[in-house]
Structure formats: structure tokens, C-alpha cells
Amino acid sequence: MTTDYQTLDLALGFTIPDRHARGRFVRVGPALDTILGAHGYPPAIERLLSEAIVLAALLGSTLKHDSGQLTLQAQAEGGAVELMVADYKAGEIRGYIRHDSDRVAEMPADPSLFALFGKGYLAITFDQAVTGERYQGIVPLEGGSLGEAAEAYFSQSEQLPSLVRLASRRLPDGRHIAGGLLVQHLPEGEEGRDRIHARLDHPEWEHVRALAQTLGAEELTDADLPLETILWRLFNEDEVRTFPGIGLARGCRCDPTHIRSVITRFPPEERAQMADEQGEIHVDCEFCANRFSLALDSI
């Protein structure tokens, strides 16, 4: 591998003006290793969380302000996965999965989305801290992949024709790479023309989608293939404008100061009930798998 592995954590936005399209690439490596390394998930769960984190970065990096947050949550019944959460804020990504280890062990190496979740739904929440607005869309977890579920979200909640591609793999040396592409066609709103959300078969969108669909998982997870090169290969017939890349990093906001501030919001009698026999309150973070302990008499 000739590319510096440490440079992989990146989100790259672009537009194709003449096709009224916008898009975003994401590729993660070291940040993903840090997230997965805290849990010891089986391979199928590692792949699922990797794709969820990429999807969260694809959507979250479209937020205009760093104070905003994107949260992706999947809950299910009847599958091996009970809960999946991934979020993005100001370039920081994190996530975790609650699952039934015994059921995962009985599954094939590449289980279907239904086998993993059974009957479930995907909730995508945008929190705009600057305006105080909070928007959530919920769609069933259906289709062959998490990417297809995301496409259904945009079709139903945003009425935006969209294509989502997600991929992940584990390298022979144990490191991980995951990547994703989001491409969307935007409403033109020009007088005398149909709005795009009412025309899923618009010829400009058909052109962009047909090209984007040729992208394979191998390209998305090829550390030696720059994202800009993939972009040129796909859309070299059109003018493409890129935005400055956004660096990505594993970020968990469960530091001791934050934990203490949360605990102090509870009345003294409730804090006393939280403490163990040694007079300590323990808080486990599912994102980073760390335990924080606070002495009751220090709060």
C-alpha cells in the first residue's frame, strides 16, 4: 500500500452544476480502527458498523455549521442486532452496536440486512444547533443494504432522488477501510420546468445515476486510489467542482467533566441510589467502551 494510511479519514464534497447534482465521498481508516478496536465485534457486525459510520459522515458532513449534529439510529426486532447508533459532529465520528453474539455466530459470513435486523427501522436526525431546529425522518429497514435504506429515506422524507454506495473491508494486516458515495439531484425550480422531486426519471439525473452506479466496492476501499481520481473517472464528461476536504476523526464526548455535569443534575437521593457499596458511581459509555467512576462524596 503506497498511500499514507493516516490520510484516509476524509469527506470530500462536490457538485456537477450542469446536471443539477451534488455529492460527497467519504473514506475512513485510522478513525475506524479506533472505533472498532474498542469493542471486538465479530466481522459481520464490524462491517455493518463501518458502513453506518460512513453513512453518518456522508450525511453529517453536509451540515453547514460545526455545531450541528447528525445521528443515525437503527432499532429492530427479531434480528441479531438490537440497536445501532452512529453520529457525526464537526468532523468527529463515533458509533456502536448492541447485538446477540450467539445469533451472529450462527449466521453466514455475509448475512442479509433482514437477518441482522429482522423487522426494524432507520431514524436519521439532523440537529441544527444554530437555529435550534431538529428534523427526523424514519424509514423501514428494508432492501438489500444499509445504503438502500438510506436511499428510501431521501425518497420518502426529503423527496430527493439519491444514490448511496457503502463498502468496507479488513486488510490482511488487520486494519480497516470503509468508503461511501452519496449523489443527489436537486430541485431546479425554474419557471416552466418540473421540480426534480416530482420527476425521478429526469434525464439529467438518469445520466448521473447511471455513471455513479458503475462505482464498485473495490474502488471505494482502495487506499491507493484518491477520491479525486474516482470523481474524475465517473464524471469526466461534465464540469465537476470540489469543496475543501473535511478531516474526520474518532470523537467521543464522554469525558469525565461531561459525565460529572450529567450526574450532578440528579437529586442527591438519586445519586445515592446510583452508588455501589464503595460509594462510587460508575458510568459506561457504549461508544468508546470506557467506564467512568466518580466518588459520591466528590460530587
Rank of each mutant, 00 (worst) to 15 (best):
T3R: 14
D4V: 07
Y5K: 00
Y5H: 04
T7P: 02
T7D: 08
F14W: 07
I16P: 03
D18Y: 07
D18W: 06
A21S: 15
R22S: 11
G23C: 02
F25L: 01
F25R: 00
V28R: 02
G29D: 04
P30T: 12
P30M: 10
D33A: 03
D33F: 02
T34F: 04
T34H: 11
L36D: 05
H39Q: 09
G40V: 08
G40R: 13
P43H: 11
S50F: 06
E51W: 06
A52Y: 06
A56L: 03
L58E: 01
G60T: 04
G60D: 00
D66M: 09
G68D: 06
L70H: 05
L72C: 05
G78S: 11
V85A: 08
D87F: 01
K89W: 00
I93T: 09
R94E: 03
G95R: 05
R98V: 07
S101F: 07
D102F: 08
R103W: 08
R103A: 15
R103H: 12
V104Q: 12
A105H: 14
A105N: 14
E106K: 15
M107V: 11
D110W: 11
P111I: 13
P111C: 13
G118P: 14
G118T: 10
G120Y: 00
L122C: 12
A123K: 15
I124E: 06
F126H: 13
Q128S: 11
E133D: 15
R134Q: 14
Q136F: 04
G137R: 01
G137N: 02
G143M: 03
G143Q: 04
S145W: 01
L146G: 06
G147I: 01
A149Y: 01
A150W: 03
A150H: 06
Y153T: 02
Q156E: 15
S157C: 15
S157K: 06
Q159M: 15
P161G: 15
L163A: 05
L163M: 05
V164R: 02
S168K: 04
R169A: 10
D173A: 12
D173L: 12
H176E: 09
G179S: 03
G180E: 00
V183Y: 01
L186H: 08
P187Q: 13
G189N: 11
E190I: 12
E191G: 14
I196Q: 13
I196L: 12
D201F: 09
H202F: 12
P203C: 14
E206C: 11
H207I: 10
A212D: 04
L215S: 03
A217Y: 00
D222L: 08
L225G: 04
L225T: 07
P226T: 06
E228A: 14
W232F: 09
L234P: 03
F235Q: 01
E239Q: 13
E239T: 15
F243W: 04
G247I: 01
R250A: 10
R253V: 09
R253K: 11
C254N: 11
D255S: 14
I259T: 03
R260L: 08
R260E: 07
S261F: 00
T264K: 12
F266V: 00
E269V: 05
E270V: 09
R271E: 03
D276S: 14
Q278C: 08
G279P: 06
V283L: 06
E286I: 07
F287A: 12
F287Y: 14
C288T: 13
C288A: 11
R291Y: 03
R291K: 13
F292V: 07
L294G: 00
A295D: 09
L296W: 07
L296S: 08
